[in-house]
Design a protein around this nucleic acid. Structure first.
Length: 311
DNA sequence: ACTGATGATTGCTT
DNA sequence: AAGCAATCATCAGT
């Protein structure tokens, strides 16, 4: 009768609500879904709160270096995605719940006109669930994609490299050209350079690797640059007060006598630590020289994916 | 949009 | 393990 039916409905309703939040705990352990869930969990998008946002904000506020800034930016974006993901998820759960209730009411009314078996109800509810699970799946999918894009954009240094600051290039070039006969800095020298330039040792290694090969490939052009730096080094070594400290302007070369500094030219790199005092250069933070914002990775609409923007 | 410069990665050699 | 050579992907000036 009616009371019986009503209680059945209620029971189903409860089950519904419970099972929504654990779609993957249901029977079909959809491998795809599990993959998505695992990834979201691994990225910290799903799962328990982890004070991500505030930590990122704190890191951003605390100054620090390029890498860390980017990292914190990345985490901030991730937190954003996470939040949207959760609100969306909640929205879906709510909608599912409401819809189920609605259908229940409908069925209940129908039950006055014709007998409705619990099986039928079950079927209906299942259909609804499947629909909403599909939506959830989609949400998870696009969240995953958004995270992946974010990762590749922020964490893969190669995809988003920045040129070194002018001072850093200056320091590296000075070392390179004053050690042209043997442009292979030792581990300690690399560390020193890394410290001076505010980059990592492996970046120094990369730089010298690139420099050596590119110098070799185009000695003609490099020579001009070389003469510039050797002249600078000499000036610095002798601390010549007369001639102006040379115009540091990198592309100002051209005149400069043909000192043709080949790989052997510069005798011994004894004038190593010198110079670098000469020019003013951009004394401020090096990061204001480079571009500021990446593709607007903010604001997320309904679709989490829009979070990372096009490209 | 195109192009040269440049930092990073990959695969190979020594 | 370090370096070289080729290549990728982005930067930055035009």
């Amino acid at each position: 009768m009616k009371p019986a039916l009503f209680s059945v409905l209620c029971e189903i309703k409860e089950k519904t609500v419970l099972s929504i939040r654990g779609a993957q705990e249901e029977e079909p352990p959809d491998p795809q879904l599990m993959r998505l869930d695992n990834m979201l969990l691994a990225e910290g998008v799903a799962g328990p709160e982890k004070g991500g946002g505030s930590a990122a904000a704190a890191a951003a506020a605390a100054g620090v270096h390029d890498n860390q800034i980017e990292h914190s930016e990345y985490r901030a974006k991730l937190a954003q995605i996470r939040q949207i993901y959760h609100t969306e998820l909640e929205k879906y759960e709510q909608a599912c719940h409401e819809f189920t209730t609605h259908v229940m009411n409908l069925l209940r009314e129908q039950s006055r006109a014709r007998p409705i078996t619990p099986k039928e109800i079950d079927r209906m509810v299942n259909i609804i669930h499947r629909k909403f699970s599909a939506i959830q799946m989609q949400l998870k999918q696009s969240t995953c994609e958004a995270v992946m894009i974010l990762r590749s954009r922020f964490l893969d240094a190669r995809r988003k490299r920045r040129n070194f600051s002018k001072q850093a290039t200056e320091v590296l070039n000075e070392y390179f050209y004053s050690h042209l006969s043997n442009p292979y800095p030792s581990e300690e020298a690399k560390e020193e350079l890394a410290r001076k330039c505010n980059i990592t040792v492996s970046q120094v290694s990369n730089w010298f690797g690139n420099k050596r090969i590119r110098y070799k490939k185009n000695i003609g052009k490099a020579q001009e640059e070389a003469s510039l730096y050797t002249a600078k080094a000499q000036a610095a070594a002798q601390s010549m007060p007369s001639g102006d400290p040379t115009s540091p302007s990198e592309q100002g070369y051209g005149h400069m006598s043909q000192t043709t500094p080949t790989m052997i030219q510069v005798s011994q790199g004894q004038m190593m630590s010198p110079s670098r005092h000469s020019d003013v250069m951009i004394s401020g933070l090096q990061m204001n020289g480079v571009h500021g914002e990446y593709p607007p990775v903010s604001m997320v609409g309904n679709n989490v994916q829009s979070q990372v923007g096009p490209e």
